[in-house]
Design a protein around this nucleic acid. Structure first.
Length: 399
DNA sequence: CCGTAAATAT
DNA sequence: GATATTTACG
C-alpha cells in the first residue's frame, strides 16, 4: 500500500492523472471549539472534538485504501484543549504530508481504491473528491479571502494550497457552493422581507399562540443571532459564519453530547422523554399540544395578510430530525450540513405553523415517515400526507 | 480559464 | 430514486 505524497505531484497535469483517490480525514473533519462556547458544559470536549490541524485537512492520495485504513489506531492527534491549532486563516503550511491516522475507514466505503472502481475503464474517470467539512472549510476560507465574487477556481486552489486538488475539483465545488449560497440568500431575503411585512401589518399579534409569538419575529441577523446550538451548520452556507464554532459530532462517538437534547417528536426515539416546555435559555423545548392552532396573520382591512414564509422554522423546535448516532460501522460525514427536509416540511405545514427558519443541524437526519406522521398528528394536521414531508426538494438555483 | 449544463457514480 | 461530483461544452 503506497501512498503518494502530494508533494511529489508537481506538474498539474500529472497530478490529475496520478490522482487515484482521496481519502479524507473523515473522522477528524471537525471544527474545533476552542472558542469556548461549548466549554461551559463541563464536558470534556477533548474527547469529543478534535482540534484541526492544517495538515489534516489534506486529502491523502492513496493507492490502496483498504489496507491503509486498516492501519490506523489513533484518531485525534491534537486535542483542542482550548487551543486553536492553526485556528487562524493562515493557510500557509499545507504542504506537509499528512498521514491519515483516523480509524475511520470512511474512505473505504465509497471511494474506491484507485482504478478499481467499477468505472475504471482505463482509469479514465477521476475519483470523486470527498469534501469533508474541513476541506470545505478551507475552501470557504479561500473564497472569503478572495471575495465571493472574485473567487475563481484557480485562485482558490492557489490559496487553499492543496496540491492534490485540481482546478476542476474546485470549480465543481465552487459551482455547488454558489448554487447553495444563492439559494440560502434567497431564502434569507425572503424571510426578512416577510418579517418586515409582518411588522408593517401589525407585527405579532398578541392574540397569537403564546408559544408562537416569541419566535415569530425574525431576528435582524438570523444566522448569527440564533442560539449557538441552533445556528445553521453550513457547509455550503454563508462563509462569514465561523464554522469553527459549529458543532459536528465526531463520527466515532456514540452520543452527540454537545448538542442540546432534541425533541423526541421526530423519528423513533422513544427513550427520549418528551419534556414539555423546559424553557431553559438556549434549550429547545417542546411546544404544548397545538390542537389546531393555526397561525393567523394580523388582519388589516384592505391589506391582504402576507403569506407565511414557507422557508421558516420555529426556532424552538430545532430537533426536526433525529440525531445521527454515530454507529459502529464506517460512516460518511454528511456531505452537507443540513438536509432539505425542512423545506418540504415547511411547504407542507409551514402555512400552518409559520416557523422561523432554521436549518437542520448537522448530525441530524430527516425524520422517518413515522416521525413525520406523529408530528403531523401532534400538530393536528391531517390533510397533509406525511410522505410529502419527506420528499427532498431540489437544491439547485431557483431563479 | 471560467461558468453552465449534462452525465455518471454512489 | 436522488444527489453529489465529474465531465463536457461554449
Amino acid at each position: 500500500m503506497l501512498s503518494i505524497s502530494p508533494l511529489r505531484n508537481s506538474a498539474k497535469d500529472e497530478r490529475e492523472r496520478e490522482m487515484e483517490s482521496f481519502l479524507m480525514e473523515g473522522g477528524e473533519g471537525f471544527p474545533d471549539f476552542s472558542d469556548g462556547n461549548f466549554l461551559d458544559m463541563s464536558i470534556d470536549f477533548d474527547d469529543l472534538f478534535v482540534g484541526i490541524k492544517d495538515g489534516d485537512v489534506l486529502p491523502d492520495l492513496e493507492v490502496d485504501l483498504a489496507e491503509f485504513s486498516a492501519s490506523g489506531g489513533e484518531e485525534s492527534e491534537s486535542v483542542s484543549g482550548g487551543k486553536v491549532a492553526g485556528g487562524k486563516e493562515e493557510i500557509v503550511s499545507k504542504r506537509e504530508e499528512s498521514v491519515s491516522r483516523n480509524v475511520n475507514p470512511l474512505g473505504v466505503k465509497g471511494r474506491k481504491s484507485s482504478a478499481q472502481s467499477k468505472n475504471n475503464s482505463q482509469g479514465k474517470r477521476k475519483v470523486k473528491v470527498d469534501w469533508t467539512p474541513e476541506l470545505h472549510k478551507r475552501f470557504v476560507q479561500a473564497v472569503e479571502q478572495l471575495g465571493v465574487d472574485k473567487a475563481v477556481p484557480s485562485r482558490i486552489l492557489e490559496i487553499m494550497g492543496i496540491d492534490c486538488l485540481t482546478r476542476h475539483n474546485i470549480a465543481s465545488h465552487l459551482q455547488k457552493y454558489r448554487s447553495h449560497r444563492k439559494h440560502l440568500l434567497a431564502r434569507e431575503a425572503e424571510a426578512v422581507t416577510w418579517s418586515q411585512k409582518r411588522q408593517m401589518y401589525g407585527g405579532v399579534g398578541k392574540n397569537m399562540s403564546p408559544w408562537l409569538a416569541p419566535t415569530m419575529a425574525f431576528p435582524p441577523t438570523p444566522m448569527t443571532s440564533l442560539p449557538q446550538h441552533f445556528r445553521p451548520l453550513h457547509v455550503w452556507g454563508h462563509p462569514s459564519v465561523d464554522q469553527r464554532l459549529t458543532p459536528v459530532w465526531p463520527k466515532h462517538l456514540a452520543l452527540p453530547l454537545p448538542l442540546p437534547p432534541l425533541r423526541a417528536a421526530w423519528g423513533p426515539t422513544p427513550h427520549l422523554p418528551l419534556v414539555p416546555n423546559s424553557l431553559t435559555p438556549g434549550t429547545p423545548y417542546f411546544p404544548p399540544p397545538l390542537a389546531t392552532t393555526r397561525f393567523q396573520s394580523p388582519i388589516v382591512p384592505g391589506i391582504p395578510p402576507p403569506p407565511p414564509p414557507h422557508t421558516m422554522y420555529r426556532v424552538d423546535t430545532p430537533g426536526i430530525g433525529v440525531p445521527t448516532r454515530p454507529s459502529t460501522g464506517p460512516q460518511h460525514h454528511p456531505p452537507f450540513d443540513f438536509y432539505p427536509l425542512k423545506e418540504s416540511i415547511d411547504s407542507a405545514i409551514g402555512d400552518v405553523l409559520c416557523k422561523p427558519w432554521l436549518p437542520l443541524p448537522l448530525g441530524l437526519k430527516p425524520p422517518s415517515l413515522d416521525g413525520v406522521l406523529v408530528e403531523l398528528q401532534r400538530q393536528g394536521i391531517s390533510k397533509i400526507p406525511p410522505r410529502l414531508c419527506l420528499k427532498n426538494p431540489k437544491f439547485d438555483d431557483i431563479s
